[in-house]
Design a protein around this nucleic acid. Structure first.
Length: 327
DNA sequence: CATCAGGGCCCTG
DNA sequence: CAGGGCCCTGAT
């Protein structure tokens, strides 16, 4: 474990998202597995961030409403930050948390659809949210592969314990991510000793790509979806399932719907067709259905339904779902 | 105690 | 393009 770092320099920034904005549904995703770089309470989210080599703590406080949104952002750092740095940081935060997202067309489309209207009204202003960098998401995608949720959680925690930095701010100790160089320099066996198994090789190769600056997240953002997909698939250890998540969460491709895996197929079948989970709707039918009903925003629409389900699960038992989520 | 699939992907034939 | 192998875990 690395020595912890206390972040006692603070800066405040006022953020105004576009409307409508649902703070909690955007800043907390009950379907994401818990990870030690973030925590949430209603109306407040804490998150670490590695930006331009600086380890930071972030606190987002809800100070607005659905139609008059406002967020107080407090940035915690170990030393003073320049105005230029803070400006670039805030700009990146606005991107990652989708605070400038124009939701009008999507909202109109969903509210005009009889079957989506009730869910949409419940979650108006809910946005996707990915707090991390492309590199960080790739590591998460790799620990997700071929593992139960509990194992994924354990693998990420072990990685934080060895390569992350505990950051102390606002009464919390949360882990900051490591730079790609850290894993690039480590022997593969050292990673295997952390029980990540064959994923060690993928983590090494992905870290190498970023350490040697062979992939640039910010350049990729400006490319077409086809180019992004192709570049991601070329990474060792990254296949269609991971690319699907990356395209949506990291590159904000709201229409991108990836290969639907069996467990997702079962959940979608139940959600949209109310079928028993042992009689799932064929993937091709699901895909055609999404395209017909959610054209232009397919994954975004599915995300809203998905979140609706997992919020429900967080305060009541959803029997059929429990069987599909092996912890 | 043994077996097996899991929130995939790579490699081989 | 199909199918075996991969690390480790917890469920059975």
């Amino acid at each position: 474990m690395k020595p912890s770092v206390t972040l006692d320099v603070q800066y405040d920034r006022w953020l105004e998202p576009t409307t409508p904005f649902n703070f909690d549904a955007t800043f907390h995703k009950p379907d994401h597995f818990p990870s030690a770089d973030q925590t949430w309470q209603p109306g407040c989210r804490w998150q670490t961030m590695l930006w331009q080599g600086q380890l930071l703590g972030l606190r987002f406080q809800n100070r607005g409403t659905l139609e008059q949104p406002g967020i107080n952002l407090t940035i915690y750092a170990a030393s003073e930050l320049s105005e230029v740095f803070l400006d670039s940081l805030v700009k990146e935060i606005r991107f990652r948390y989708n605070l400038d997202m124009d939701m009008d067309a999507f909202n109109r489309q969903m509210l005009a659809d009889d079957q989506s209207k009730a869910v949409m009204q419940r979650w108006l202003g809910l946005r996707p949210m990915n707090p991390g960098s492309l590199y960080e998401y790739l590591i998460i995608a790799i620990v997700l592969q071929n593992a139960t949720v509990r194992r994924s959680v354990n693998m990420l925690q072990t990685l934080f314990d060895h390569y992350g930095t505990p950051l102390i701010f606002d009464g919390w100790t949360l882990f900051g991510w490591w730079q790609p160089e850290a894993l690039h320099e480590v022997p593969e066996q050292a990673l295997r000793d952390l029980k990540v198994g064959y994923r060690a090789k993928s983590m090494k190769r992905v870290s190498e790509t970023f350490a040697l600056q062979r992939m640039d997240e910010f350049v990729l953002r400006g490319k077409s979806a086809d180019e992004q997909r192709k570049a991601l698939l070329e990474l060792y250890g990254v296949g269609p399932a991971s690319v699907g998540y990356l395209m949506f969460d990291v590159f904000h491709r709201w229409d991108e719907i990836a290969a639907i895996s069996p467990w997702e197929q079962k959940i979608y079948s139940r959600l949209f067709f109310n079928t028993e989970t042992d009689q799932p709707v064929p993937v091709s039918d699901l895909m055609a259905y999404f395209t017909r009903r959610f054209a232009g925003h397919r994954m975004l629409a599915v995300h809203v339904f998905w979140e609706d389900l997992f919020w429900k699960r967080s305060h009541e038992k959803v029997e059929w779902l429990e069987a599909l989520i092996r912890l």
